[in-house]
C-alpha cells in the first residue's frame, strides 16, 4: 500500500470521530444478585458488601452493591453462540460499515486492546437498569508498532441508570494493526 492510499484510509475514517458508535445498548436485565454471585464466586472476591445483606447494611453503602468492575458486564449483548468464532468473537452480527470493519477490510485485521479507564460515579445496586451510549473519541494517524502498522482507536462509553443519571464511564483504546506489515523495511519498495 502506498502513503497516498493510507492517507485516504485515515480520511475515510474521519467522519466517524466524535460521533456515536452504534446504537445505544440496553442491559438485558437490571443489576441483580444472581449475576453478582456468579462474579464473586468466579473471582473469589470476599468483600462482604457484594453478598452479605447484614454486613452491607452496616457499611457506608447501607445495602448490597455490585462489584464496580462488573459495570461492563451488565450491558454486554446476549450472544448468539452459533457462529461466534466465525464472527471473530462478536456476540451478534454487526450491522453496516464502521471504522473497525473498514480497517479489517483494508488489512488491519489484528486487534490489541491497549488501555481501559473506568470511572465509577456511584456503586450500582440491585434494580438499577443500565443503558449506554458510545462515542468514538479519536483515531490516531498511522503508527509503526512492534506488531506492524496500525491505528489507535479510542472510544468512550457512558453508563446511565434510569433515564439520565450517569453512573459510570469507560475509555477504551485498541490498536488495529496489519500483521503483514511487521517489517517496516519491506514497505519501502512497495510505495
Amino acid at each position: 500500500m502506498t502513503e497516498t492510499e493510507m492517507d485516504e484510509l485515515r480520511e475515510r475514517l474521519e467522519k466517524y470521530v466524535g460521533k456515536p458508535m452504534g446504537a445505544a445498548a440496553v442491559a438485558p436485565d437490571p443489576v441483580n444478585l444472581p449475576m453478582i454471585r456468579h462474579w464473586v464466586a468466579a473471582l473469589d472476591d470476599q468483600n462482604p458488601v457484594y453478598l452479605d445483606q447484614e454486613a452491607a447494611a452496616g457499611s457506608r453503602f447501607g445495602g448490597i452493591v455490585a462489584p464496580p468492575a462488573m459495570l461492563q458486564a451488565w450491558t454486554m449483548p446476549s450472544p448468539k453462540i452459533e457462529g461466534i468464532a466465525e464472527r471473530g468473537g462478536a456476540p451478534r452480527e454487526s450491522r453496516g460499515e464502521n471504522p473497525i470493519s473498514i480497517l479489517d477490510e483494508a488489512g488491519y485485521v489484528g486487534t490489541l486492546a491497549t488501555n481501559s479507564e473506568l470511572e465509577f460515579l456511584r456503586y450500582l445496586r440491585p434494580g438499577d437498569h443500565l443503558h449506554t451510549t458510545m462515542e468514538l473519541e479519536s483515531i490516531s494517524s498511522r503508527k509503526n508498532t512492534s506488531l506492524g502498522q496500525g491505528y489507535f482507536i479510542t472510544w468512550v462509553t457512558n453508563y446511565f441508570a434510569g433515564d439520565e443519571e450517569i453512573v459510570g464511564k469507560q475509555l477504551f483504546r485498541i490498536l488495529k494493526f496489519d500483521p503483514s506489515s511487521i517489517d517496516p523495511s519491506s514497505l519501502k519498495g512497495s510505495g
Binding site: D45, Q46, N47, P48, V49, A55, S59, R60, F61, P68, A69, L112, A113, T114, N115, S116, E117, L118, E119, F120, Y123
Partner: peptide, 17 residues
C-alpha cells in the same frame, strides 16, 4: 479492596494492557 477493606469505594481503575 482486599487491602483497603469493605468501606473502600473505588472511583477509577485506569490500566494499560
Amino acid at each position: 479492596t482486599d487491602w483497603a477493606g469493605s468501606e473502600a469505594m473505588i472511583r477509577t481503575i485506569r490500566i494499560r494492557l
